[in-house]
Each structure stands twice: as C-alpha cells, then as structure tokens.
C-alpha cells in the first residue's frame, strides 16, 4: 500500500468521524431541546398508525393510506404532466405563432405564481365551475405546475438532437409526425430521462401541498394524527422519513440512469 492510498483511507476515516460527531451533536441538541420543553417521546405509539392486525387481518393505518394517496396523486400527475410537458414543448417549437404564444403564456403564468395559490385557485375557483372533485383538482393543479417545468426539459432534449437527424428524416420523405415519433423523440427521451426523473422527485415533494385542500395524502394524515394524539415530533419525523425514502430511491434510479446515458453520449 503506498502513501497516497494510506492518506486517502486515513482522511476518509476522519471524514466519517466528523460526520458521526455532527449527527451525534444534532441528536443531542434535539434531545436536550425536547427535554427542555418537556416533550414526552412515545415512539412505541407510531407503528399502529402504519398498520394493525385485527383478528389476524392486516389493516393499513392512516400513514399507509396517506402514502398510497400520495403515490396515486404523484402517479397520475406524472403521466398528465408528461403529456402536458411534451405538448407544450412541441407547441413552443412549432411554426405556429399563436401556438408559441399560448405555450409561452402558460409557462410564464405557471412559473411566476406560487404553487399553493394555483392549488387554491383550482380548488376554490375552477373546481366548482367544472365540478371537479378534490382529488382531481389536486392532480390537475400539480400536473399543470410540473408540466410547465417538464416542457422545458422536453424542449431542451428535442433541441439537443442534431439538425442532421431532421434533415436525414426529411430527405427520406418522412412526415413531421413520423420524424418526431421515430427519430427525434426516441433519442431525446433517452437524454432527458434523468432530469425528468428529477422532476418527478419535485412532484412527490410538492404533492404535500395538496393537504391544504384537505386531500388525505401522507401529509394530511400526519396532521390529523397529530391533532388527535399530540405525537407531533414522532409523526413529523416519520412523515419526513417516508418522503425521504421515496425520493431517495427515485434519485438512486436517476443516478443509475445518468451513468448509463453518460456512457451512451460518448459514442453517439
């Protein structure tokens, strides 16, 4: 083992020690703080809010119910946001002046107003007019919001495809539709999968805001449990950890995808 390797091993040991010290310090401060406010930790209470067994039958608790709703909202919104994003990107790249204008207005409005206000606007203003359910309003609001950002990702991906690809397709007599479908989008999608997955992570986090219109997602369930039991610290820790687990696993997927697509770009 040479000196460089030794140093490296030594310095990574120091790193980990520092990290452990920091985490320990924060935990200690937290415990001290909670003692000071006289907080009574009752972690043993938490599992029952995940699930219980009644007569040997598995019964999901409010946290699992909430997680399911969060995943459902995220799933629907992801599909809808992708469709909106792709459509807006194509509109912005189209030859139609009106189309480009409409896409531009949509983007600017969505990106320059708070998501919370958009959710309220949809739920309190548009939902009664169009007779939308709470859940639907939440999905539409999130999709419109994330779709605006997704469209920029789509656009960047489409624009990144070399002009020669268009010219080759056109000179073969392919229609614009076929060119997009068989040549441009398959190549663009491969490139934008990592940033698009990153957008999905944002979507999961942003979905917590729908609890404000009383959609019983993970966050709303957490609030309800706390209101009934005053397990404030335990439940918020738990809820945050659940979000963290979902988003970290997604990020892990992103990393793998990025590594793979990075290799492909080299010879493309």
């Amino acid at each position: 083992m040479n000196i460089i390797q030794k140093t490296r091993k030594y310095s990574s040991f120091i790193d980990i020690a520092k990290f452990a010290l920091l985490v320990g310090g924060i935990a200690w401060l937290l415990l001290r703080g909670s003692e000071r406010v006289g907080y009574n930790w009752q972690w043993y209470q938490v599992p029952q809010y995940f699930f219980t067994f009644e007569d040997g039958v598995f019964v999901p608790g409010p946290l699992l119910d909430g997680l399911w709703v969060t995943l459902e909202i995220t799933g629907y919104s992801l599909v809808l946001a992708s469709v909106i994003g792709l459509f807006t990107a194509l509109l912005r790249l189209s030859g139609s002046r009106v189309g480009r204008f409409i896409a531009r207005v949509y983007l600017e409005v969505i990106r320059n107003t708070p998501l919370l206000v958009q959710i309220f606007f949809l739920y309190f203003v548009l939902a009664p007019i169009f007779e939308l359910e709470r859940f639907t309003a939440a999905v539409v609001a999130l999709s419109l919001f994330e779709g605006a950002y997704a469209s920029e990702i789509f656009r960047a991906g489409i624009v990144s495809i070399k002009r020669g690809q268009w010219e080759a397709a056109h000179s073969l007599g392919l229609s614009s539709f076929d060119t997009y479908r068989t040549i441009i989008l398959p190549q663009a999608l491969k490139r934008i999968l990592p940033p698009l997955t990153g957008q999905a992570v944002s979507l999961i986090k942003d979905s917590a805001l729908v609890s404000t219109i009383a959609v019983y997602d993970l966050t709303m369930q957490g609030r309800t449990i706390i209101a009934e039991t005053f397990l404030t610290f335990e439940i918020w820790f738990t809820v945050a950890a659940i979000y963290l687990i979902i988003t970290l696993s997604l990020s892990l997927v992103v990393n793998v995808l990025e590594k793979r697509s990075g290799q492909e770009v080299e010879y493309a």
């Binding site: 070399k162 020669g164 080759a168 007599g173």
Partner: peptide
Amino acid sequence: RREVGMVFQSFNLF
C-alpha cells in the same frame, strides 16, 4: 423528397 435520395457529408444515420 420521396423521389430524391440524399447523402450527407456527416452521414446522419439514426
């Protein structure tokens, strides 16, 4: 375009 074939300097294969 259907009747005219074109070959480019940079190949432009898919």
